[in-house]
Write a protein that binds this DNA or RNA. Structure first.
Length: 265
DNA sequence: ATGGTGGATGCTCCA
């Protein structure tokens, strides 16, 4: 049986608990990685999620902002909690899956509006976060280790990952410096982009559509900010990848949609 | 060129 793994920036797990349960029933993932749960650990809806079959839970939240979680129907072991840029802001969780697969769930800083680290401290934080994760992966991890990295990386690296490459060159999420830093991060252990493995360029593919559009579906001005990567030992195990675009049209939707891969283990 | 929406929180921050 292949392993089904989903990543989703849920934008408040309490507000969208019904949508999470719908995702579980509809897509039946074995493992779900959430970002922006926006809740402290004590208020995370553990029981409702366990009752839906996801008994194994790694929750790393904080009050109001950020926060990541890994929910699983199969046993997993919690990895070391790491903090980045000297902040306790709950942007990374690690799990060990059966088969000795190391799973990383990231919520990379959004970076604010101005794409200049001097004028904008949030952009500086984003770049520093990328540098630190790159240094750590490069020093501490080997490409021969089976690993999966997922999350809201808040960068759309390819021209076909955005609705207009030219119009987004100066927009945070698609600037050359961010794309370059994400490329360096991807190069650390030769991460394979599992989604583009099945949906290669130049086909357009998005996972996020702004709440501010009058009609997200009609304008379709999306970006691919959410990613699933695997290390080279798992490349041959990849079976499928899909973006649940329909979820953007759900009642009270998140602005991000779930991304799922299937992997033979 | 601008402002548009949504979530958590508590009279404003973040995305």
């Amino acid at each position: 049986m292949p392993l089904r793994l989903t990543t989703w920036n849920i934008n408040s797990v309490r507000l969208r608990l019904p949508l999470l349960l719908r995702l579980m029933q509809q897509e039946k993932p074995d493992v779900i990685c959430l970002q922006e749960i926006k809740v402290e650990d004590g208020l995370f809806p553990r029981e409702a999620i366990a009752a839906a079959g996801y008994e194994h839970q790694i929750v790393r939240g904080m009050k109001g902002y950020n926060g990541v979680a890994i929910l699983s129907r199969i046993p997993l072991e919690r990895g070391e909690d790491r903090s980045w840029c000297d902040r306790a802001d709950s942007r990374h969780a690690i799990a060990m899956l059966p088969g000795n697969i190391e799973l990383h769930n990231f919520y990379i800083p959004s970076g604010g509006d101005i794409p200049d680290p001097v004028q904008n401290a949030k952009f500086a934080h984003k770049l520093q976060f990328l540098d630190q994760v790159t240094d750590w992966l490069g020093a501490e991890r080997k490409r021969s280790r089976p690993m999966i990295l997922v999350g809201d990386l808040n960068i759309a690296p390819l021209e076909c990952d955005v609705w207009s490459h030219k119009q987004l060159l100066d927009v945070v999420s698609h600037t050359p410096i961010e794309v370059e830093k994400l490329s360096r991060l991807q190069g650390t252990v030769e991460w394979v982009d599992a989604v583009r493995h099945f949906a290669p360029p130049p086909g357009k593919l998005y996972t996020w559509w702004s709440y501010r559009a009058r009609d997200w579906l009609a304008s379709d001005r999306g970006r691919r900010l959410d990613h699933v990567w695997v290390t080279p030992p798992l490349r041959k195990n990849l079976r499928s990848a899909s973006v649940l675009r329909d979820a953007r049209g759900w009642q009270r939707a998140s602005d991000h949609v779930p991304v799922t891969i299937e992997l033979d283990t």
